[in-house]
Write a protein that binds this DNA or RNA. Structure first.
Lengths: 340, 340
DNA sequence: GTTGGCACTCCGGGGCTCGGAGTGCCAAGT
DNA sequence: ACTTGGCACTCCGAGCCCCGGAGTGCCAAC
């Protein structure tokens, strides 16, 4: 009863189940994989695997199905992230090369990821919190309303309307703008907010309320971001593929996909780049999504991480393939962010 | 054989079928509606309605189901757009009031519409083509890359990176900026592009290529918009509701929802505000969506229309309710755009 | 530790029946 | 000229049963 063979059996079960979506039996196993032993032997191994909680049978006298724990062991110890073929690499870079815009990069990434994995893809916008200010612009809308435009190092552009309690002359607007830029450019958003706090005390009374208001707007933008983030979803149509086969409840998943807060939690916090996180079934934070898994990773210029992206699909998904795709796309996005 | 009663029967059939989703028979009809006649009489009416192609039976000896033509007559002649209750009005305005941003307005509208109608909602961003330029901003990223930020009258903010063939000194950047604003502010985007054409000839050779490049970027932005537009979708989870009951093929619908071009075509071109357009089943441009209907209308400040919004659902949807919701939301969005 | 044999389990598809809801038509009623 | 009750007919679909096939666990033999 070799340990190695038992793991080989587990791997075979996972692979077969993923491709057929049907409980796999001992006989079918030895036929499709060259295990070199008889079905009876495999049955013995299966009994052990079941005892260890790695596989289960839906009903007595049915084939075996991997449990979440089984998938976990599979991805942790039985899987190499398979490198993408050079054709795939080329397709990816061609697909992302044409983007001239952060929005463009994000929307293309999400499409690409969905297409590569045939699953639902999620891409988070670069977090505001981790960006630095590249430029601040004030545009007067009416005499008491100003549009605050923030251009950030990650390419994000945020806008907020600021209502002023009193009129603001065009000259003081220009003055304010240059002061703002002086104080904020190069800073992280949180630092910028406090820098504005300092600024408040330097300017004369007339401008003081304006600076304070703008600072408040910055803080508010950040807190909103922190709670809601900003995410884009794609490949929802792929749900229909396995939604037909009903193994996954699509309703809760569709609901989750509408709630950005939920999605952010699903993606989770990736710490180091190149480390692909896999969360399987019940390991996730939501009970309703106990039959879905998430494969995600962080991206960002250099070693820094400014956002996450990943895919979500049924627990019986193609983990090696998904992990490879997620990693590859994250790398390309990071490269692009690096250049910008 | 009064015409009036036959129409009453049709209305009753539509209402019952919409609420039960099951073919409705003569007996059930007279029980649920006070028609004042016997089932036999209703059967005669039904025979006529069927001859006219307004209803059909799925199988011999089954109840009747409205045809697309039947729904058409229903919405055209048997329906008053029911006014929203004051509670609903309050809910709507409360929901949209908090928005401080065009993005905010759009995302909230789409959620609201999805929630009100329990269907999939689509909202188009204000069209670039119909907006005028409020402000142009140039932000230098590197010495040869400039971020062009366009702030438009509808509140949209567009950004594009422009690659310059040669370095641009900070002073000429500022100069260029003021010239650009002088030439473009207040213009429609297409006019702005041609105004830049004129500008090209006035400036000295050094700046000429820059102006030309920026003009080209504007044109490119517009053409991209024209082909892709920009739309937001919400309430996809509502698909699961009737996706379970399988009367509508959700796969083609999900696919359509991913293609912005398709969505724009679905929304169609609304010409006059307050005119809610209903497109039923096969009337639409896509054969795969022959079992879905679209209820849409235009919105915009005053009498002008800058974008469309609507809902899409199964042909057997609640038309009066959807029409009311669509109209109400469009009105509120228009009001908000008016203020901004 | 592996293997073939064997009895047992159980899901799931095919076929069958049957009741109920619905229809169309006709003849009688107003 | 409509409307209505009666009646024979149709047909879907839910429930039921049956049975084959795939799979299992166990045991004895290798």
């Amino acid at each position: 009863m070799s340990e190695a063979r038992r793991l080989a059996v587990l791997r075979a079960i996972v692979e077969d189940y993923v491709s057929t979506r049907e409980p796999v039996g001992s006989k079918a196993l030895v036929e499709r994989h060259r295990l070199g032993v008889s079905p009876a032997t495999v049955r013995n191994d299966m009994a052990v695997l079941e005892e260890e909680g790695l596989i289960a049978q839906p009903h007595t006298s049915a084939g075996r199905v991997p449990t979440d724990k089984g998938y976990r062991l599979f991805v942790d110890r039985l899987t190499e992230v398979k490198p993408m073929s050079s054709a795939e690499r080329r397709a990816i870079s061609r697909f992302l090369e044409g983007a001239h815009d952060l929005d463009d990069v994000i929307t293309r990434s999400v499409r690409l990821l969905a297409q590569l994995t045939q699953q639902v893809a999620i891409v988070q916008y670069p977090s505001l919190v981790r960006s630095t200010v590249r430029h601040v612009e004030l545009v007067s809308l009416t005499s008491t309303r100003v549009l605050l435009v923030l251009i950030l190092s990650t390419g994000r552009v945020e806008q907020r309307v600021v209502e002023l309690p009193e009129e603001l002359a065009p000259e003081s607007l220009a003055d304010l703008r240059s002061r703002l830029n002086l104080a904020a450019v190069g800073q992280r958003l949180s630092d910028a907010a406090s820098a504005l706090g300092d600024l408040t005390e330097q300017v004369d009374a007339g401008e003081r309320t304006h600076v304070a208001l703008i600072g408040a707007t910055l803080v508010e933008a950040m807190s909103q971001e922190a709670s809601e983030g900003r995410v884009v979803v794609g490949g929802t149509a792929n749900l229909a593929r396995f939604g037909d086969g009903f193994d996954v409840a699509i309703k809760p998943l569709l609901e989750a996909l509408e709630e950005h807060v939920v999605l952010l939690k699903l993606l989770g916090e990736s710490t180091s780049p190149d480390a692909v996180t896999v969360r399987i079934g019940h390991e996730g934070p939501y009970q309703e999504l106990a039959t879905t898994s998430v494969v995600a990773t962080g991206y960002g210029p250099g070693q820094e991480i400014v956002g996450s992206l990943g895919v979500v699909g049924p627990t019986h998904m193609d983990y090696p393939g998904s992990m490879a795709a997620v990693r590859a796309v994250a790398r390309y996005v990071s490269t692009i962010l690096d250049q910008a």
